[in-house]
Amino acid sequence: MNALLSVHKLTMRFGGLTAIDELSLEVPAGKITGIIGPNGAGKTTLFNCLTGFYKPTSGHLRLAHPVRGEMRLERLASHKVVRDAQVVRTFQNIRLFPKMTVLENLIIAQHNRLQRASKFSLAGLFGLPGYRAAEAEAVERAATWLTRLKLESLADHAAGDLPYGIQRRIEIARALCVEPVLLCLDEPAAGLNPRESAELNELLVHLCRERGIAILLIEHDMSVVMNVSDHIGVINYGRKIAEGTPAQVQNDPQVIKAYLGEDDEDASGEVAA
């Protein structure tokens, strides 16, 4: 198994609180890795460490970038994690640019590429062909993803005015416009109805199988995690308590205990539901 990302003994402390405690985890390339765990287990903190929003207290985050070689994510500032390492995330509580249109949201995701093409805005200011081509390409890329996610009819609407489920999709489309090597999704199914959830499953599998994007997925909706993940890590109190295929994890006594407390008979059924 060639690991795209290896998390090695990652620890994150806030004052006296240890949110992540010597967590080690491997994320293989081209696969979907699920992360589950009760609320407050440290899942989002893991994402924040991965994407440079928090500086981990200790531990390594090694990314085997297919082009740039090995990179150490914990040493990069948040914008460089995206720009250079192409590790992109979405947020649990959607963070779109609400007053801007859906299309603009997707164009902003391609900021660095366009900014380079605009040559300190000079080429852009005078509408030079190089910049115009780059802009057309960016719109093209955005349009492709919008079509793939069935959003094309909403392209010119202000993102903040759209329904919740659609905003989730926009956020994923926006992340895809960065052309990620590793896509980190923080509860993408939260607030989706069963049909939207099923569509999400299908999309994730497509991204992974057809486009070769590795996905790291935090999710509470077991119908999503269990159906699409190739591999699942379970965390509780900042530690990894189990790891394996969906089937293995579902039957792991540690996991059942973490989710349902002790002495519960119908535990495995609940987790799988």
């Binding site: 994407t51 914008h79 992109v88 963070r95 640019f97 164009i107 900021h111 900014q115 805005s121």
Partner: peptide, 21 residues
């Protein structure tokens, strides 16, 4: 231009800006 859109994006959500590189 990219700068201008970046300004507006910054006004809307700084954290999301960083998450977009």
């Amino acid at each position: 231009l990219p700068v201008g859109r970046a300004w507006e994006a910054l006004r809307e959500d700084e954290i999301a800006c960083r998450a977009m590189g």
